[in-house]
Design a protein around this nucleic acid. Structure first.
Lengths: 195, 195
DNA sequence: TTGCAGTATGACAGTCACTGTCACATCCTG
DNA sequence: CAGGATGTGACAGTGACTGTCATACTGCAA
């Protein structure tokens, strides 16, 4: 990672921090992107260049890369007889050993998303994009063992369990462990299907 | 249903028809709400009053009420030992015996949603709202038999299967039956879990 | 240290989705 | 036919987002 990249990350963190402060204080709707830019000592142009949309000021997450990597890894060596369990392992692994500061940031963002329908909508749309990529990967990895429809359903169920676990963790905050909650959600998924 | 209601429905259908025509012809982004209003012989004010957002010009569906009703019915007499199957029955029932014109409209809207990320995002958000309501209903109906987490996961898996079935039907168009595709998706859900 | 190439930045103008308001028309009801 | 309730269009305003351009800056190499 070059020096430029590091600078960019630092700048984005500063802007996101300023944005979260303002949103928590006044509410998402009552704060304009211009306000955020001013508070962060940047121009609106820069904010848009970095984050693209107002919603991504909240949703942007450096941690996402880790989940991607875990899922790619899981796809590489996938147990064809228990694919959901394997995907569950990947999600759990992606959220294990998280920095407490990172965990608090997750919680902070989650609280805003809960309070703001516009953020919830944007988050769901983003997640759906990741879900689609996973479905593609599963189709490739399970070409022989499963139908296209099964791969699609599998990807959906996996993300369904993940999100359910994440939200259960948020409801239980500050007690409870995120990876453990995700694990429990995957277990629940196996329990509620098939009677 | 009063005369006023009937008039309103007719007006909404006319506006939605005009909107779909324009969006298919020029693309969603290249058409403004003002264009739609002009084509439908109404004012932008009226369009916004009826539909709320530009996306809902495409997503609005009179059929939604039927799905709601079926889900409420399913919740009323829910088999606690096979809740996913019962929900599957409800989704299948909601899309059985559909008017061919209604079916074509479903397909038309689906094609636009596939082509336009903004529409996909709005649709996913709308569905997520329905999913949340179902989760609430399940918590009430299964209070004794299942945990909150299980109810949440169950609602998510049910909608996951439904959407997967719907999309499979779209991919297979014009062959294939929508209720049968939904049924197959629910079967797939039971197959891919616990495997 | 300095000069250079590539890149980030900020200013600006423009589009359009969406909101709220108000006067006016139109429609069921008694 | 008079009444209030309801629907409508015109209008002004806000703010998210886009594209462009000149300028400033940064990291690298000589």
């Amino acid at each position: 990672m070059s020096l430029r990249d590091r600078n960019r990350r630092a700048a984005m963190r500063a802007i996101q921090d300023a944005a979260l402060d303002l949103f928590e204080e006044r509410g998402f709707d009552a704060v304009s992107v211009e306000d955020v830019a001013a508070a962060a000592g940047a121009s609106p142009s820069t904010v848009y260049r970095r984050f693209g949309t107002k919603e991504r000021l909240v949703l942007h997450d450096e941690q996402d890369a880790r989940l991607d990597a875990e899922l790619v890894r899981a796809l590489g060596s996938l147990d064809r007889d228990a694919p959901l369990a394997a995907l569950g392992d990947a999600f759990v692994a992606a959220f294990e050993d998280l920095d407490p500061a990172e965990l608090a940031l997750q919680r902070r963002r989650g609280a805003l998303v809960d309070a703001e329908p516009a953020l919830a909508a944007a988050l769901v749309a983003e997640i759906d994009h990741g879900r689609e990529e996973l479905a593609g990967g599963l189709r490739a990895a399970l070409r022989r063992a499963r139908t296209e429809l099964e791969c699609d359903v599998l990807a959906r169920v996996a993300f369904a369990a993940f999100i359910a676990g994440f939200e259960a963790w948020q409801r239980a905050w500050p007690s409870g462990s995120l990876p453990r909650m995700i694990r429990r959600a995957f277990d629940a998924a196996e329990r509620v299907t098939g009677g």
